[in-house]
Design a protein around this nucleic acid. Structure first.
Length: 559
RNA sequence: GGGCCCGUGGCCUAGUCAGGAUAGGGCAACAGGCUUCUAACCUGUGGGUCGGGGGUUCGAAUCCCCCCGGGUCCGCCA
C-alpha cells in the first residue's frame, strides 16, 4: 500500500501549481472503497490557492493521466479519487504469496516482551488470559515484521500469598499429593487459608512467620516451598500449552527480590537519587510525577528496586532495542515512574520501554477477587467454551474433541483481542462469547469454507500455474475485495506500531464479511471466469490464514 | 483533592494518536433466503442529541477548555 501512496504523491506533485510544489501532500483511504483506493482531499490547498477545493480537485484530476498502476483518476466534490489497477495489484499480491512476503520484513529489532507474570499461589484466571492473548499475539505481530522477540515471564514466587499456601499445606491440610490439577490444588490451599483466617485472624501473623523463616532459608519451609512451586508451575505449563503461550525466559522473584540495592546506592552517591527520612527516593517531581521511594529506611528493597534491577539485566543480557511489559492498567503510574527512573540511571531512554497496558476483565458483579473466590478460572473457562463448541459440532453431526478445543481457542483469543486493549470489559459468562457475528469462529468459518472449496476441487486448483496467472473481468465486488486485500500489510504494521492486535482482528472481520457476501452472490467454480476467481479466493485464504496466526489462532481447514 | 483511562442506537463495538465525503459493524427484534462451491452463512427493515456545554476550524466522534457519569492509581505493600 505504501508504494501506491508514493506513486500517487508523485503524480499529484507533478500536477500541483508551482507555488505548492513544496507542500507535504496528505492522502487518505476513502471510507467507502467504491469511491476509490486513495483520496486526495483538496481542502489542504484551498487556503494557499484561495480557490474552492472542488475547483482545485477538478483541475488536478484533469492534469493527471492514469497509467500502469493507477487505472482511473476522478474528481468528486473536493476530493480527487485514485483507483488502482486491480488486476495488476492482484497479480502483485500473488507474487508476494509465492515468495511469502505478504508482510514485508522491514524491521529488525531485538524486543523483549514480558507478559503474564502470575503470583505462584493460585491458578490463572480470565484476566491472565487477556494478558496472555495480548502478549503472545503482540509477539507474533512484531516477529512477522522481522523483529527478534524474546518472550519473558516473571514469576512472583514469594511473599505473603505464597507463604499463606505454605502455612495451609503444613498446618491446615493432611499434606497429601495433589489430587487435582496441581496449580488448582495449591490454589485451594490459598482459599482454605483465607477461610480459616476469617475464623482466626492470628493466622496472618503465622503466615508472616513463614515468610521470615523462608527468608532465613529454613530447610523445612524451603522444601515445602519448592514442592508447591513445582506443582503450580506444572499446572501453568499445562494451561500455557492449552492457550498457546510460549516463553523463552522465566524470571523468579525469589532470585531477584533483594537485588538492585547496589544500583540504587550508586545512584544515591552520584546524586541522582536523594535521601529522605533515611530512605532513598527518586525525585520525579520535575517530570510531573510523584516521587518514588526506591529503598526503605531499614535498607531493604522494595518491589520497584527489583524492577530496576531486572530492567537493567534485560537490556544487558539481551542487548535489547526495546523492552515491553504487558501489565494491567492499574499499574500505569508504576511503569511511568519505572521508565523514568531507568532513564535517569542511564539504563535506557524511556522511548525504549513500553507498558502495554490493558483494561480489566470485570464480572457483572464487579471486580474479580481471588481472596473471595470470585474469579473466573482459566481452565474452567476454557472447558466451558469447549463444551459449547462441542454442542455446536454435534448439531452438525460431528463429535470431535480436538476440533472443539481449537474452536474454543479461536473464540477465546479473538474475543480477547478484538477489543481495544485499554478498554475494560465486563465478562458475562452466559452471553459474552459468541460463535457467530464478529467472532473468531466467524473468521474460521470463512477460512474453512475456502479450504473446503479447494479440497473439493483439488484438480482445478492444482492445474493453476501461479506463474502464468491472469486476472480479468473483475466485478465491482471483486475490485473492492482486492482493495481491501492490499491493506493487509499496512494493517499489520499499524497493529505493531500501536501494539494493538485488535486492528488485525477487526480487519479480519471486514475481509470475512466481504468474502462471505461475495461467496453468496458469485459462483466461483461454476463460472466462466474461474481462474480469476480461484486466484482471488487463494489470496483471501492466505490473508485470513496469516492474520489468524498473528492472533495466536490456528487456521482451521474444516469446522 | 490530584493524575490517568473509558463514555458512540436496547446491548457490544470500529473510527479518536496523524480533524474531512451520508458515523461503519455485530448481537437482539422484525421480514426473507438452503434439491446448487460449508445456512456457525447471506439479503433487507426499523433503531443514533457520537455523555453535556462552550471554543478552534471552510469542516469536529476526532483538537482545546469546563462540567457530568463510571473505572483506576496516588504506601518505606506486592
Amino acid at each position: 500500500m505504501k508504494m501506491y501512496f508514493d506513486k500517487v504523491k508523485e503524480l499529484v506533485k507533478k500536477a500541483l501549481p508551482l507555488e505548492l510544489s513544496s507542500q507535504e501532500i496528505q492522502l487518505e483511504i476513502p471510507k467507502d472503497l467504491s469511491l476509490g483506493d486513495i483520496a486526495l482531499p483538496c481542502f489542504q490547498f484551498a487556503k494557499e490557492l484561495r480557490k474552492a477545493p472542488q475547483l482545485i480537485a477538478k483541475e488536478i484530476s484533469e492534469k493527471i493521466n492514469p497509467d500502469g498502476l493507477i487505472s482511473k483518476v476522478e474528481a468528486v466534490g473536493p476530493y480527487v479519487n485514485f483507483y488502482l489497477n486491480k488486476s495488476a495489484v492482484a497479480l502483485d499480491l500473488i507474487e508476494k504469496i509465492k515468495d511469502n512476503s505478504l508482510i514485508p520484513k522491514t524491521k529488525n529489532e531485538k524486543i523483549m516482551i514480558e507478559f503474564l507474570s502470575p503470583n505462584l499461589n493460585k491458578p490463572l484466571h480470565i484476566g491472565h488470559i487477556r494478558n496472555g492473548s495480548l502478549g503472545e499475539s503482540t509477539s507474533k505481530i512484531l516477529e512477522s515484521l522481522g523483529n527478534k522477540v524474546i518472550r519473558a515471564n516473571l514469576y512472583n514466587d514469594r511473599g505473603m500469598g505464597v507463604s499463606e499456601t505454605i502455612y495451609a499445606y503444613l498446618y491446615l491440610s493432611d499434606k497429601k499429593e495433589p489430587d487435582t490439577k496441581p496449580d488448582h490444588f495449591v490454589g485451594n490451599l490459598y482459599v482454605l487459608f483465607q477461610k480459616k483466617k476469617k475464623e482466626d485472624p492470628s493466622l496472618e501473623e503465622k503466615a508472616r512467620e513463614i515468610l521470615k523463616r523462608f527468608e532465613q532459608n529454613d530447610p523445612e519451609i524451603i522444601s515445602v516451598w519448592k514442592k508447591l512451586r513445582k506443582w503450580v508451575m506444572e499446572g501453568y505449563e499445562e494451561t500455557y500449552k492449552k492457550f498457546g503461550y510460549n516463553f523463552d525466559v522465566i524470571y523468579y522473584e525469589s532470585e531477584i527480590y533483594e537485588k538492585g540495592k547496589d544500583i540504587v546506592l550508586d545512584a544515591l552517591k552520584k546524586g541522582i537519587f536523594i535521601k529522605e527520612d533515611n530512605a532513598v527516593v527518586a525525585p520525579l517531581e520535575k517530570y510531573g510525577l510523584p516521587n518514588k521511594t526506591v529503598l526503605k529506611s531499614d535498607g531493604t528493597t522494595l518491589y520497584i528496586t527489583q524492577d530496576i534491577y531486572l530492567a537493567k539485566k534485560k537490556f544487558e543480557d539481551f542487548d535489547l532495542d526495546k523492552s515491553i511489559y504487558v501489565v494491567a492498567s492499574e499499574q500505569n503510574l508504576h511503569f511511568v515512574q519505572l521508565f523514568r527512573i531507568c532513564e535517569m540511571l542511564g539504563i535506557a531512554p524511556v522511548e525504549k520501554m513500553h507498558h502495554l497496558s490493558y483494561g480489566m476483565v470485570l464480572l457483572p458483579s464487579g471486580k474479580m477477587k481471588s481472596r473471595e473466590g470470585t474469579v473466573v478460572d482459566a481452565d474452567e473457562f476454557f472447558d466451558e467454551i469447549k463444551q459449547l463448541a462441542l454442542q455446536e459440532l454435534s448439531k452438525r453431526g460431528k463429535n470431535d474433541e480436538e476440533l472443539a478445543k481449537k474452536i474454543a481457542l479461536s473464540a477465546i483469543n479473538f474475543y480477547m483481542l478484538k477489543i481495544d486493549p485499554k478498554k475494560d470489559f465486563v465478562f458475562n459468562p452466559e452471553e459474552s462469547l459468541s460463535f457467530e457475528g464478529q467472532s473468531g469462529v466467524y473468521v474460521q468459518y470463512t477460512h474453512a469454507r475456502i479450504s473446503s472449496l479447494i479440497r473439493k476441487y483439488e484438480e482445478i486448483f492444482r492445474k493453476l500455474d501461479l506463474n502464468k496467472a491472469t486476472i480479468k473481468d473483475l466485478t465491482n465486488e471483486e475490485e473492492k475485495m482486492i482493495s481491501l486485500l492490499t491493506q493487509f500489510p499496512n494493517t499489520v504494521e499499524e497493529a505493531a506500531t500501536q501494539y494493538k492486535p485488535s486492528i488485525i482482528a477487526n480487519y479480519l472481520i471486514k475481509i470475512s464479511e466481504t468474502f462471505n457476501s461475495y461467496y453468496h452472490s458469485t459462483p466461483i467454480l461454476n463460472s466462466n471466469n474461474i481462474e480469476t476467481r480461484i486466484l482471488l479466493t487463494l489470496i483471501i485464504k492466505k490473508v485470513i490464514e496469516q492474520g489468524l496466526q498473528l492472533l495466536n489462532i490456528e487456521p482451521l481447514e474444516e469446522i
